[in-house]
């Protein structure tokens, strides 16, 4: 950990490059960070509200679009963060082969850059909701520690995945389908409470549900009752991070041979 602190400038330099990498040479620049989620949001609202006319009783007077938006940005931060983090070591193979530095910084920089970009978009969404949809309660501040834990979960998954990716080149092929299934298994487009009992019980085991649901409940209703599932998921996240980092650090001396 002390060695990581000594490398903080390198981390910041890598982070800065990661953020800039997204938009270097592009015309739209940061606009793209907001266009993609907005487009998804538009499609989901169109499909579920206009075409299928889905009614979610738990929403009360809150609009469907706000309901989805509050979950979509954290989800995208997680998904994109893990996907970019998994690629991070391999994408920087020139550095790994020639320069001595803690390889985990590459993963942290990639995931952090994604969270910075997506959560900036999320802040914008919250601001708009605060201005046009009747304001937010002070409870919204509780979102911050929960998102921090979500960030930690993304780091853990990315550490584990990026180490595997170095050895098994087709690992990232798995991620696309995996995230597609996970997206529908996570209560982004629906609340867990809407599900029939048995399905809700199963999906409650999805740790992501225990991040998305409280964040949305806090932002939308200003209240949320902690469940055993949620507390267990958060504890598991800490444990998972420690394990994934151990896995990564054990394999990282061998990256140079394989990237």
């Amino acid at each position: 950990m002390r060695s990581l602190w000594n490398h903080r400038w390198l981390f910041l330099a890598l982070l800065e490059r990661e953020v800039r990498n997204r938009y270097v040479g592009s015309v739209g620049g940061w606009l793209w960070a907001i266009v993609h989620p907005l487009l998804l949001l538009g499609i989901y609202t169109m499909v579920f509200r206009t075409i299928f006319r889905v009614e979610i009783p738990q929403l009360g007077e809150h609009p469907f679009v706000a309901f989805v938006a509050l979950a979509l940005w954290p989800w995208l931060a997680f998904q994109e963060g893990v996907q970019r983090g998994v690629q991070a070591v391999q994408a920087n193979s020139a550095l790994v082969r020639k320069v001595s530095f803690p390889h985990e910084l590459l993963v942290y920089a990639a995931v952090t850059a994604t969270f910075v970009v997506q959560l900036a978009g999320y802040a914008l969404v919250l601001t708009i909701l605060a201005l046009f949809a009747g304001g937010l309660s002070a409870m919204v501040l509780l979102i911050v520690p929960i998102l921090a834990l979500l960030f930690l979960l993304a780091l853990a998954c990315a550490l584990f995945g990026s180490a595997l990716q170095v050895f098994l080149r087709d690992f990232d092929q798995l991620l696309g389908p995996l995230f597609m299934v996970l997206f529908y298994a996570t209560p982004v487009l629906y609340p867990l409470a809407l599900l029939p009992g048995w399905l809700g019980d199963i999906l409650a085991f999805n740790p992501l549900a225990q991040f998305i649901e409280p964040v949305r409940a806090l932002a939308l209703f200003g209240s949320w009752t902690p469940s055993t599932f949620a507390l267990a998921s958060w504890a598991a996240t800490l444990l998972l991070f420690v394990l994934a980092r151990g896995f990564f650090l054990r394999l990282s001396p061998h990256f140079e041979d394989f990237v």
Binding site: W9, L10, L12, A13, L14, E16, L95, V99, F101
Partner: peptide, 12 residues
């Protein structure tokens, strides 16, 4: 220059 220098251990 900044990233390359950071890799060599220089602060910003």
């Amino acid at each position: 220059v900044f990233l390359a220098a950071a890799l060599l251990g220089l602060t910003r």
